[in-house]
Design a protein around this nucleic acid. Structure first.
Length: 554
RNA sequence: GCGCCCGUAGCUCAGUGGAUAGAGCGGCGGACUUCUAAUCCGAAGGUCGCAGGUUCGAAUCCUGCCGGGCGCACCA
């Protein structure tokens, strides 16, 4: 019996009790959940439904709980139900009913944990969106890890999702970048508003190597060449870094093309039709105060140039016109001023800012090394890049470290610490389970131990405390994935896997899976192998959602 | 001044109103002639920033305050 089935049984019992006593069925929720109590004294699962309902129907929690307990206790698979405290329902399953899960998980394989929760939603998930004027740095790296994992989680929950990287290639930053490359190639100092750093010199050299004539061109032509070639090389480098990190975007969207396609004018027309555009002082304005902004915003300046908000609007509307009904933006805290703006744009376009647009603000990553802070300013040239981080700790450890924290928390990474403790990173604790389970499976095959036919599986033999604990952990996985999808929290997967890993290691330590020496193979060995393989399935599924490998050996 | 996020063990961080607040790391003490000791077991470590409020029940929700981070353009 899975937790979901148990929860449904609790609700069904509530319906029966309500009907029997003439209570208002409308007071019942559409869904309920059972939780896993911290203390084993409180049973395998607990329901708080009676306490939640009592006030609504004017009964005491304990009275309702007692009635529910009576009904639930009769169900097959349920060993006992107790009413405790103010009205908790503490439920114990029979070992066999719990053990069933091992078979169900193995048979579901990669499907275990996937759902249709978000079926029918078409989601555009934008993240990273780094300027093509420098390498992907550590700030972006957090969103790369979190965004890509979220992408996988949303897909696993049934949504149709496109991951998208916006390229800011239309503004003056690219000009400054080109100027900097040119200056570097000439050996001149970095120009004002320019970019510094070794990568600028490197790219400058690459361009000169590929275009020996570059330095003898007239200045204006040379600048254009450095700008365009630098842009191309930088974009390639970004793609390469992200690929190596296991992150590949479905769509790379160019701002330049957005402008070239006339999308900006089109967007302003659309907003005008919605009645929120007006002209004043020679400029074109968006009346964002219609939707709570403290002042209106300019779309087109008096000099005819478009503002960034104009492009933002065009980009949002373009996403909507491409058929996405939910646009999720993953932005760093340094951009949280965008939130109101983007939501207002959606509102001005006639959309529901609480549904069509969703802006996740992730807090920044702080780096410290040798006790002091490390600055991440791109202009200053002191960059800690994605590539450097990966070189230091590897893809798995890097992705895991970044994905296991809530994006609401600023994350402090100590470079020394990461380097030194790479082996102690929690990712290895989890991956070690993948390796151990694989090793057990290999050894089992060597000694002729096989799971056998599913119908010969004896779930009731998995009655040891550690086996039951592990089974409960396995049963939680689908709920964890669903919650991670709904709350957009990939870190929940990581935290869950750490718990599951603990349960497995304790099981492994207490319950011998393989026969020792010449010992005869029994149904218990086979049952434990089912449990071993079920664990391997869940660990692998979970790590996949994080974009982290599940190694066969370590 | 206004807005968003955070404040939980020595450190890094979990905990979408439930029972005795958790994990990893660090430190202390144990466990390998048997499936991988990258593991396990034990002890230690907490006024959940502070003060009120709501609730049968608050780390969680509300208000105020304190502390930290980040933002508030006809810049990109």
């Amino acid at each position: 019996m899975t937790p979901a089935e148990l929860a449904e049984a609790v609700l069904a019992a509530a319906r029966a009790v309500f009907a029997e006593r003439g209570l208002d069925l409308e007071a019942l929720p559409a869904q309920t959940a059972v939780e896993r109590p911290r203390s084993p004294e409180h049973g395998d699962y607990a329901s708080t439904l009676a306490m939640q309902l009592a006030k609504r129907v004017g009964r005491t929690p304990r009275e309702l709980a007692a009635a529910l307990a009576e009904r639930l206790a009769e169900l097959p698979g349920i060993a006992s139900v107790e009413v405790a405290g103010p009205g908790f329902l503490n439920i114990r399953l029979e070992a066999a009913a719990a053990g069933e899960l091992a078979r169900a998980v193995v048979q579901s394989g990669r499907e275990y944990g996937r759902s249709r929760l978000l079926a029918g939603q078409r989601i555009n998930l934008e993240f990273v969106s780094a300027n093509p004027t420098g390498p992907v740095h550590l700030g972006h790296t957090r969103w790369a890890a979190v965004g890509d994992s979220l992408h996988r989680i949303l897909v696993a929950s049934g949504a149709e999702v496109a991951s998208e990287h916006y390229i800011n290639d239309a503004g003056s930053q690219l000009e400054h970048f080109g100027n900097s490359l040119y200056a570097a190639a000439l050996g001149e100092p970095t120009p004002e508003h320019g970019y510094a750093g070794e990568y600028v010199v490197d790219i400058g050299k690459q361009i000169v190597a590929a275009h020996p004539e570059a330095l003898s061109l007239p200045r204006a032509e040379a600048l254009m060449l450095f700008r365009d070639e630098g842009y191309r090389l930088m974009l390639d480098a970004m793609r390469t870094s992200l690929d190596r990190f296991g992150v590949s975007f479905d769509i790379w969207f160019s701002e330049r093309e957005l402008h070239a396609s006339g999308a900006v004018e089109h967007a302003i027309d659309t907003l005008r039709k919605q009645g929120h555009v007006y002209e004043s002082d020679g400029a074109v304005w968006l009346r964002t105060t219609d939707f709570g902004d403290d002042r209106d915003r300019v779309l087109i300046r008096a000099n005819g140039t478009k503002t960034y908000i104009a492009a933002d609007s065009a980009y949002y509307l373009n996403k909507r016109e491409r058929g996405f009904d939910k646009c999720i933006y993953l932005l760093g805290a340094d951009h949280h001023g965008y939130v109101g703006r983007l939501r207002t744009i959606a509102a001005c376009a006639g959309d529901d800012p609480d549904y069509h647009i969703e802006i996740m603000i992730g807090q920044l990553v702080h780096l410290v090394q040798s006790g002091g802070p490390v600055r991440l300013s791109k202009r200053a040239g002191a960059i800690v890049t994605l590539d450097e981080l990966v070189d230091l700790v590897g893809v798995d450890a890097a992705r895991y470290s970044l994905a296991r924290a809530s994006t609401d928390s600023t994350l402090t990474l100590d470079i020394d610490e990461i380097t030194r403790q790479a082996r102690e990173n929690p990712v290895y604790y989890v991956q070690y389970v993948a390796a151990r389970t694989a090793s057990v499976a290999r050894n089992a095959a060597d000694v002729g131990l096989h799971r056998g036919a599913p119908e010969d599986f004896r779930p009731e033999l998995l009655a040891h405390d550690k086996e039951q604990e592990l089974l409960k952990a396995l049963g939680e996985y689908p709920t964890v994935v669903a919650t991670a999808a709904e709350l957009r929290g990939p870190h929940r997967i990581a935290r869950y896997l750490e718990e599951l890993a603990g349960s497995y290691h304790r099981f492994y330590d207490n319950c011998r899976i393989l026969p020792v020496g010449e010992e005869e193979i029994t149904d218990l060995h086979r049952a434990r192998l089912w449990l071993n393989d079920a664990t391997r399935t869940v660990i692998a599924n979970g790590l996949t959602l994080l974009g982290v490998g599940a190694p066969e050996r370590m």
